[in-house]
Amino acid sequence: MAAAAAAGAGPEMVRGQVFDVGPRYTNLSYIGEGAYGMVCSAYDNVNKVRVAIKKISPFEHQTYCQRTLREIKILLRFRHENIIGINDIIRAPTIEQMKDVYIVQDLMETDLYKLLKTQHLSNDHICYFLYQILRGLKYIHSANVLHRDLKPSNLLLNTTCDLKICDFGLARVADPDHDHTGFLTEYVATRWYRAPEIMLNSKGYTKSIDIWSVGCILAEMLSNRPIFPGKHYLDQLNHILGILGSPSQEDLNCIINLKARNYLLSLPHKNKVPWNRLFPNADSKALDLLDKMLTFNPHKRIEVEQALAHPYLEQYYDPSDEPIAEAPFKFDMELDDLPKEKLKELIFEETARFQPGYRS
């Protein structure tokens, strides 16, 4: 834990890192770190609560700039109880001085990944967590956004079992017609939660990839272990087919990539493993919904509104309290091709509203 900075004593240090967030945020305490930044909790002297502050230093890398800009653009436009918001952003007053960006968010005690390492969940908890994931996802999908990296560590939890989806750095506007060349190379989302079509096709992607990830998360809540822990690309596919069985001819016809289709045709026939054999203690309604989410063919996979209306979630289902976005989200430009200098300018502009004396 960093010592509390005395008023006016300059930035606090946390594990050798400068955290320049005073005077409003003090009493910093280390939480963890990701690929390009550290997260601390801090005391907000204005709202009198502890908050989470993520320090991001992305400006050396085009990919990190892209992810940072995506996350900020999306989260500043989203407003939903099951999606983490941005409360404040701290950065230098000029673009030349801006080396880091500090993002202030609600402090959540833990995440689903940490929880599943230590606790076996009751059916009631599984049901409530799944409902909140789908409630947040309904809003995301209504904005025409794909999260693309749903996994237990991106689901934040607090002691009252509130759940918030975080990390929109890989999110995209849904565009089933656009052929994202190089899709697989830039697709760094965790393999275990990846839909089979991501490994088999490169053309376009749809909201059904997020539903697949939610199915993987439900299976993990039922058993405290990942359902498809593939060691590499082909191993991942083999794990999936080992449980779902061989795809039907109709399902194979959806695979545009001939090499991928021929690979699947070359494999020995596998039978589907019954879900109640894998999860003998699970609620039968939970397994019915799991089956509809972990469907090989993305066109037959359940959609988020149908999933919310499934009998497993009937005690929570309330369409009048499951809000959607006001308007579909649009990125003005494809960020993939922009140089990091341009992305830095866009991050600077996007964060201006939090600067003292800002006038829109």
Rank of each mutant, 00 (worst) to 15 (best):
M221H: 08
T185G: 09
E305N: 03
L237P: 10
L287S: 10
P328K: 07
L76R: 01
E197I: 09
V14L: 14
A52S: 14
E345R: 02
K117V: 09
K330A: 01
F228K: 00
G85I: 04
Y139I: 08
V273D: 00
L157Y: 12
W212T: 09
I217R: 07
L146G: 06
L112T: 03
Q236K: 14
L264E: 02
A5N: 00
Y205E: 13
V18L: 13
H147K: 09
N253E: 13
Q97F: 06
M108Q: 05
V39H: 09
S153Q: 09
K99G: 11
G85A: 08
D235R: 09
I103S: 08
P247Q: 09
Y312I: 07
E250F: 00
V51W: 04
P268S: 13
N238A: 07
S360T: 11
F279S: 13
D100R: 01
P298M: 06
P319C: 09
N87T: 02
F183L: 15
L157F: 11
A174K: 09
L338D: 05
L116F: 10
W192M: 12
L346E: 13
A219F: 12
I56H: 11
D44Y: 15
G136P: 01
C166Q: 09
G182S: 11
K203T: 09
Q62N: 07
L264Y: 04
F183Y: 15
F296R: 09
L76Y: 00
Y187E: 06
P274F: 00
K54I: 12
L289R: 02
Y64C: 09
Y263T: 06
Y187K: 04
F168A: 02
Y30W: 02
K117H: 08
D111R: 04
S142D: 03
R79W: 09
I240N: 13
R359I: 01
A174C: 06
L130Q: 14
E109D: 15
K73S: 13
P11A: 13
T185D: 11
P339S: 13
S57T: 13
T295D: 05
K54Q: 04
V104T: 01
H125M: 10
R91S: 15
N276Y: 14
P339K: 13
M333C: 03
V39S: 04
S153N: 11
P328C: 03
N154F: 07
Y64G: 09
E341V: 13
S153F: 04
F296P: 02
Q315W: 00
M199I: 15
K270N: 15
L234E: 12
L76K: 03
Y233H: 15
I95P: 02
N82Q: 13
V49Y: 07
I83H: 02
V39C: 03
P58T: 15
N158P: 06
E60Q: 08
D179P: 08
A143S: 13
I255K: 07
M13E: 14
M333A: 08
L287Q: 15
G32E: 01
Y233A: 07
I324S: 09
E314M: 00
Y312E: 10
K117Q: 11
